[in-house]
Amino acid sequence: MSAIRCRQLCKTFKQGDEIITGLDHIDLDIETGEFVCLSGPSGSGKTTLLNAIGGLDTPDSGEIHMGDIRVDKLERGPLADMRLHHIGFVFQAYNLIPVLSAQENVEFVMEVQGVPVAERARKALDILKEVGLEGMEDRRPAQLSGGQQQRVAVARAIVSHPDLVLADEPTANLDSVSAAHLMGLFQELNENHRITFIISTHDKRVMSYAKRLIKMRDGKIIGDEAQ
């Protein structure tokens, strides 16, 4: 499912009177099970590309295919369904729903998917244990540190084994130990479950985990190499 194909993807933003190029005729193919890092300076288009692939943002022109799905043509409802069933998101910050506990946050996606109560509780507890948050299931986000919150977000993104995980600067707010642990977890999921990862990052240590590194600048891909 997760083979991604982008063709001539363009996106511009208006900031005051200025037109900013977010994506400039991007052509990109990502195969199922790849572990890809998008790197580049701020404003290079990494997040815009992630958002477009994840169906959060609509390109001005071009095509995005995810398997058989033409993502850029989907309406809001089907787009939401696609994200729900096929994509796990990890954002840089503000990842969790404040009124839900850690376990409930992890269960959230499964609950919307309609996974039975017992199954989703078991999966949530297992994954929280795996990300090192055993015993913190009932804590609300405000009672967790930034690193712990990010691990809950990661647990939520991967718990239902999506085809694709899109992570936008996932280690930006983590210390080096937590970051390494998180990347190790991503790597394991990628290798054992063939989940495709696309991670945007500035962090060289994160890039070192990637099997493919795509460099961006000014909305263009300026480098694409296997590692």
């Binding site: 994840g54 959060l56 809001r76 409802g77 939401a80 369904d81 696609m82 994200r83 729900l84 069933h85 994509i87 998101f89 954002f91 503000y94 990842n95 969790l96 729903i97 404040p98 959230f108 996606v109 919307v112 998917q113 939520r156």
Partner: peptide, 16 residues
């Protein structure tokens, strides 16, 4: 607003 954006991103339909 950010939280609503988050649950949209996670796949909750606008109707819900």
């Amino acid at each position: 607003v950010r939280e609503i954006g988050l649950i949209q991103a996670l796949g909750m339909r606008p109707g819900l």
